[in-house]
Computed example of a mutant assay.
Amino acid sequence: MSAKTLSVVVCALFVLACTLGIALAAPSKDAATAMRVKVASARLGPDLGQALSQLEKLSGTAFYPDWLVLGDLGLGKDTAVSVEGTEAAVGQLLDAVLHKVAPKGQMLAWFIDRDRVHITTQARALAATRSREQASSAAARPGGRRVPSSTTLTFDETPLGDAVNFFRSCSGLNIHANWKALELSGITKDTPISLKVNNISLGKALTLTIEQLNAGKAREDSIYWVVDDGVVLISTGTALNQKTKIKTYDVGDLLTFAPEFKGPRFNFDMIGNNSGSSTGVNGSGMGVGGDRKGLFDEETTREDREDRDSRAVQRKEIRDTLIKTIKEAIGEDMWTPTGKGSIKMIGNRLVISQTLLGFKLLEESGTLH
C-alpha cells in the first residue's frame, strides 16, 4: 500500500470515528504514568534523535517517531535541537522538543498506543487516536467530533490559514473562510493565533480559535463560524447579516399549562322532579320536559365560557412573552423594522426569519437550540 493510499485510509477512518462520536479510552496506564514523570533537571540534544533517546531513558517507555512522515517535513534524527528544563514532566519536555523542530505552519504531536509513544504530525495523531478507538472501544457514546484527551491541540502563533486547513483536514468537514470579508475586518491568512487544548469538541476548539480575533471588535466586525447547508462558514458579522433564512420550531410544550378544573355544579332540583310535563328520560327521573332546564346549572355553563376565555388569554400572554424574550436575546435592532428578522406564531409553531448572524447569536444566547 502506498503512503498516499495509507493516508487516505487513515483520514477516512478518522472521519468515520468522529461521525460516530466514539469515546476515547484512557491510554495505557504505564505509558501515561511514564510521561508524567517529573524530571528535576534535563538538557536534551544536540539533535532530535538524541533528544528522543534521552527522553526514552527518562520515561522508561519506548518512543516510535514516524520518520517517514517527519522526513517529508524535512526532519530527521540529525535535526538540530536543544532543550533545557527543570521540574518538568517528560511529556512537557517532549512537547518543547517537538515545538522547537516543527516547521512553520506545521504542528507535531505525540500520542500513546499500547505502551508506545508515537510521534508524528498533529493531524495524524488525532486521526490515529480516533481510528484506534473505533476498532477497540466496545462502548460508544454520543458527543460529536472531539479533540482526543490523549492528544493536545496546539497552535503557537500559527497562521490562521494553516489553522483553518488543520480543522478542515481533521474534521472532514467542508469549511469555507470568507477571506475577502475577513480582510475588511483586519484578519488575513497570516494572522497568528495561539491555542492549547484537549478533550473538547472541535466546534469548541474552533470557537476558541476565533474568539481571540474579536477583542475590541463590534458585533458586525467580529468573526463567527456558522453552519449553512452542510458547510461551515467563517466570516464577519456584516457578511453574515445579509440574506435571511426561515426556520420553524415546535413550541407546543411551552404553550401548554394545567387548567384549574373546578368541577360541575349539579341542578339537584331536576333530579327526581316529577312536577314537569315529562316524568323523565327512560324513567330515570331526570326531568327534561317542562322548563327544559339541564342537569348542570347556568353558573357552570358561564364558568366554562370564562375558563375557555381565560385559557386563550393565557396562551396569548405566553406567546407574546416567548417572542419578546427571543427578540431581546439578540437585540431589537436585529428585527424589523430596524433589522431584517421577523418572528410569528402559526399554531404551535414558531416561525423565525433571520440572517445567519441572527441565528448564530440566538444559538450563543441559549434561547434556541
Results as ranks from 00 to 15, higher is better:
Val101Asn: 07
Pro337Asn: 08
Asn174Arg: 12
Tyr249Cys: 05
Met35Asp: 01
Cys170Thr: 15
Arg43Gln: 13
Gly143Lys: 11
Ala32Trp: 15
Leu94Tyr: 09
Arg124Cys: 07
Lys217Leu: 12
Gly289Pro: 02
Phe166Ser: 09
Lys29Met: 12
Arg308Asn: 14
Ala42Ile: 05
Ala312Asp: 14
Asp115Trp: 11
Val197Arg: 11
Gly331Ile: 01
Tyr249Asn: 02
Leu16Ala: 11
Thr355Ser: 00
Leu368Gly: 03
Pro159Cys: 09
Lys104Gly: 14
Gly366Ile: 05
Leu75Gln: 00
Val197Met: 04
Thr33Ala: 15
Ile330Tyr: 01
Arg168Cys: 09
Val164Trp: 06
Ile318Ser: 05
Arg36His: 12
Val147His: 07
Met107Ala: 12
Gly186Cys: 02
Ala125Glu: 10
Asp269His: 02
Ile343Arg: 06
Ala127Arg: 12
Ile200Lys: 12
Val69Arg: 10
Ala32Pro: 01
Ala3Thr: 14
Thr248Arg: 07
Leu75Phe: 06
Met1Thr: 14
Ile223Lys: 08
Ala139Ser: 15
Ile223Pro: 00
Asn241Ile: 01
Ser136Phe: 13
Gly21Lys: 02
Asp72Gly: 13
Ile175Trp: 03
Thr152Cys: 04
Val117Met: 09
Pro148Cys: 07
Lys77Ile: 13
Val281Tyr: 08
Asp307Ala: 14
Val83Asp: 02
